[in-house]
């Protein structure tokens, strides 16, 4: 086990049933996408209950109309990962707004056929991120907020 794998495994609670698989995938993903990092945090479910889960949080590079943007995302891994898909969100900064659409709801939750049809071992984090980058490149999930306009200038007669 590499040093990175060892430190990720230490972070990952024993409630995770497939720790070695999960650690290996995360290690690979963060070696490929260096702006994503593993974090433990409380995830709040729809029923209000919360659980400490590992997430991959950071940005993915998305090319849109000739420019590359670092789109902020958070991928939550359930303790049954990789047998259940991650729960994925875009995380707009205060300077951004969510663009809802087929793949994004008003909370920033990401919906993709890849997640819906998730099946280990054909589906994995690296494949998911690649799909996100393609889909977001066609339809960005966030846009910059318009800069604040100065008040309408008073017309002096």
């Amino acid at each position: 086990m590499t040093l990175t794998e060892t430190s990720i495994k230490k972070m990952l609670p024993t409630q995770y049933k497939y720790r070695d698989l999960t650690v290996r995938e995360i290690t690979y993903v963060i070696s490929q996408y260096k702006d994503l990092k593993p974090l433990m945090d409380a995830y709040v479910f729809n029923d209000g209950s919360s659980r400490d889960l590992m997430s991959l949080t950071g940005t993915v590079p998305v090319s849109y109309r000739g420019n590359t943007y670092n789109i902020p995302v958070c991928l939550w891994l359930l303790d049954t990962y990789p047998y259940n898909p991650p729960i994925c969100f875009v995380k707009p900064t205060s300077a951004m707004m969510i663009k809802t659409g087929k793949h994004i709801d008003a909370n920033g939750k990401i919906y993709l056929p890849y997640l819906h049809e998730w099946k280990h071992p054909q589906s994995d984090l690296i494949g998911l991120i690649q799909v996100m980058i393609v889909v977001f490149g066609e339809e960005p999930p966030v846009f910059s907020r318009p800069t604040t306009q100065p008040p309408f200038p008073a017309f002096q007669a």
Binding site: D35, P61, N70, I71, P72, P146
Partner: peptide, 14 residues
């Protein structure tokens, strides 16, 4: 682990 890139998004189109 690193600090990560600064998040960015395309400009709003009108």
């Amino acid at each position: 682990l690193n600090g990560g890139a600064v998040p960015s998004a395309p400009p709003t189109y009108t």
